[in-house]
Amino acid sequence: MAERKHTLSVLVENTPGALARIAGLFSGRGFNIDSLCVAETLDPTLSHLTLVTYGDDLIIEQIIKQLRRLVDVYKVVDVTEEGEFVEREMALIKVRAEKETRAEVLRMCDIFRCKVVDVSPKTYTIEVTGPQSKLQAVIELLKPIGIKEIVRTGVIAMKREKKSL
């Protein structure tokens, strides 16, 4: 069976053990985590967690069921299976920007609508937001110029509201 990437949206009780339990589930059962993003929701007693994982259909089914089995897990949605969704990730990229490359870095920022958020004599720190494919493209293009450091947030995702009546 083919492995596929799935983005899961998980609402969990905002209790101290909850995140450890979810992380432990993945390590203990040998499931994969590509990225994990956690923050409070409008209701401060619930946390929202976006989790990107991969596996064949049976494994994804197990992952979702295992998550739902946890006493602290309120809701699990497989965003990938729920039709269209918006997905965003942010990265901070510190890139070498000396005389001869500065202009090029700025041009790239312009094209990809990135922001320069910090400047030093030898570097620019760039903020990129977008779907993973865009981040990947920016990273690939900046690599030859010289990436010194990169920090990514991991993906967050949301189902699209139906547009038709």
């Binding site: 450890a20 432990g24 006493v71």
Partner: peptide, 12 residues
């Protein structure tokens, strides 16, 4: 922490 993987649930 130790018993998280072998309890149905636990509380501190």
């Amino acid at each position: 922490g130790i018993t998280r993987p072998c309890t149905k649930h636990n509380f501190l």
